[in-house]
């Protein structure tokens, strides 16, 4: 069986044209990227605001509750509903990106909010004490300190979206899901298996890439294993996001 999947990968016919792996991979990344962008534009400012002001925390739980919505069912309903109102590919792209964004918002929102919330109050006070404005406190103290948790939210959202973006093939779009759905329709199970493997490989690759990005953007002072970790009641990263790596959030003013 592994041999027949390998044979699929080594067949040059599967590496060119509209149905080729590169094109499908590109489409898949495109859907994933667009989804994350849309979700980040909603979730990160909202998370910053909730974390900074401490207001409307219920939004985080509400967003988490939305995770329970069945994505495929929502996609089919949204395509049927939006189909008559949108032109061409948009009629499938908008519902697909929309339902995927619903998956990406909760981890991004939770990560951002928890990150800001977990910043040591002493650091915040010190920042105010040296005369920083609310805006300066947010951007120069809270955001840099929150980055490890924000990034873990980004990673968890990316993983979820890249694995679920296969459903875009359901309403007739491309992406790696095409291999899975077409493989089933043609009765060529190795095509479906190859598609599934590609999705898994892509997810692992993106996760690795984002881990590197996180290493680059997070202040070295927030890494390392020295010192005790804070265990704030409502800001435990593991509680906010089970997929997140336990991150040591220590504040340095």
């Amino acid at each position: 069986m592994i041999g027949s999947i390998l044979a699929w990968f080594t067949d040059p016919a599967h590496w060119s044209g509209e149905d080729g792996v590169p094109h499908r991979l590109f489409q898949h990344l495109w859907y994933t990227g667009a989804t994350l962008l849309v979700a980040a534009l909603v979730a990160i400012p909202l998370g910053l605001w909730i974390g900074h002001t401490g207001r409307a925390r219920w939004l985080v739980s509400a967003a988490n509750a939305v995770r329970a919505v069945p994505t495929l069912g929502l996609l089919l309903a949204a395509s049927l509903w939006l189909g008559p109102h949108l032109q061409g590919d948009l009629a499938y792209v908008v519902p697909s990106i929309g339902v995927l964004a619903i998956l990406a918002v909760p981890p991004l929102l939770a990560g951002t909010y928890a990150g800001i919330e977990a910043v040591d109050p002493a650091a915040r006070d010190a920042a105010k004490g040296v005369g920083m404005s609310g805006r300066q406190v947010l951007w120069q103290v809270e955001v840099p300190n929150a980055l490890p948790l924000v990034m873990s939210g980004v990673r968890s959202a990316t993983l979820q979206v890249v694995a679920t973006a296969t459903i875009a093939a359901y309403p007739g779009l491309g992406g790696l899901g095409r291999f899975i759905i077409d493989g089933q329709a043609y009765g060529e199970y190795r095509t479906a298996a190859a598609g599934a493997l590609l999705v898994a490989a892509l997810a692992v690759a993106l996760e690795g890439l984002l881990a590197l990005v996180q290493r680059r953007v997070v202040s070295p002072g927030l890494r390392g294993a020295v010192g005790g970790s804070r265990n704030d009641d409502d800001a435990d990263p593991a509680e906010m996001d089970p997929a997140a790596e336990p991150v040591d959030v220590r504040a340095h003013a």
Partner: peptide, 8 residues
């Protein structure tokens, strides 16, 4: 049917 009716 939807795609044909809606112009996709």
């Amino acid at each position: 049917i939807q795609a044909l009716a809606n112009g996709q």
